[in-house]
Design a protein around this nucleic acid. Sequence first.
DNA 1: CTACCGGTTGACCAA
DNA 2: GTTGGTCAACCGGTA
Length: 503
Amino acid sequence: MTKVPSVIHWFRLDLRIHDNLALRNAINEAENRKHHLKPIYFLDPDIKDKIGINRLRFLIQSLQDLNSNLKKLNSRLYCIRGNAINYLPKLFEDWQVKFLTCQVDIDPIYVEQDEVIEKIAEEKDIFIVKRVQHTVYDYNNVLKKNNGSVPMTYQKFLSLVQDVPVKECIEITKPISDDCKSKDGDLKKYDVPTLEEFQIDESNLEPLKYPGGETEGVKRLHMYMGRREWVCKFEKPNSSPNSIEPSTTVLSPYISHGCLSAKLFYHKLKEAENGMPHSDPPVSLLGQLMWREFYYTAGAGTKNFDKMVGNPVCTQIPWGKNDEHLKAWAEGKTGYPFVDAIMRQLKQEGWIHHLARHMVACFLTRGDLWISWEEGAKVFEGYLLDYDWSLNAGNWTWLSASAFFYKFFRVYSPIAFGKKTDKEGLYIRKYVPELKKYPTAFIYEPWKAPKSIQTTAGCVVGVDYPKRIVDHDKIHKENCTKMSTAYKLNKERKAMKRPFPID
DNA sequence: CTACCGGTTGACCAA
DNA sequence: GTTGGTCAACCGGTA
């Protein structure tokens, strides 16, 4: 008896059914050839050491939701404990795989993995279909349109995509043929794990603010897109980094995990804007989506985009090393309440407002601590639910004035910046509760409070809350000088590399 | 080639 | 309260 061959769809950063062309291709192939359909996901047992617990929880919920959505389509998710390079070749044999589909992901982890897998598949005569479907536009086409080089400004990027039509979303609603089901469909070993399997006791975790999954992501999208007035008036710089409830949509974790299609977001935004006066990029909601597209294009077209050394668009800056300061920053113990509140919200909830990211990124790098943006990017990678390789690297280079942005003397003040949208310091009181009882006059600068007030408020600086690890007023000026020097050196180096003009 | 424009979102001070 | 200049400024893009 010969085994029925299989078609694999390999889920990675596309944890959804809707608008998933690669999945559609796999289903069609399986049905046409009466092969078994195997939707798979590789979950590395070591993943707990690689991503934060909040993100792991979001991922597992997304996988559980994906499995239940696949079941509605008369299929299931095969969640495989292990990494792809070790397990896929075995599955190729065991399942008699003839055809594999997946989404194109540009995070180097996936790129390297794909190279190995593609080689093995070629030897075994397995046909691979990869689809660019994580973005609205195909960044390869954008790069081509720009003569193979990366558009270095947002405006240039917009001009390149202006007339590019955006494809309609793919819908998958018809249940998959029984012919495509295999007998191992009931095996428990392929079930999506619970957090317990990772020795995580969920009752110890903070309550969940943003549950993972396609169902939740799509629901959230419809909820926000229904508020047409709000969508059309949206201007990012006018939203607040320190409101108690998010002032923006928090669709980002769903988009980064692929629970929500960026293309669906695009079409729904266009629908909401249609026939109404509305704000425009860069500040509009559509503009936010286009920033993502911009960074994806830059990430796809730039070598070592997530590093300083060897990154052709990144200014080389002699960052210092200070593990104590880095740790204080990451744990929200810098002694600057606004910075600490942001970092603690990040750690607790896995999401902070974009402008809050500006504040703490500037503080870590060019503003105060003079620590490499790569270190900050690593911390964000652990904590952010919406971690995305391209966006993380792009935004960190921006904020550290290493690429795209050059006005390094525009430094965010850890005292003044937050006051603009939260005079009373309610945000600080929530996330740095030891300062809860401080008078408003000192909530951003507790070290200035007289000892008697500190005692009355039940929080003495240096005892119950850390002293400032740096003096912002002094250090940010010194750092500006360092930035200026680094820029000059960079300019000289660039000039040296340029060939002499020919007479 | 040169010259100029403009860039998602700073802080501070003076008027 | 608002506006405009200043501060340590670059560089892609276009005419």
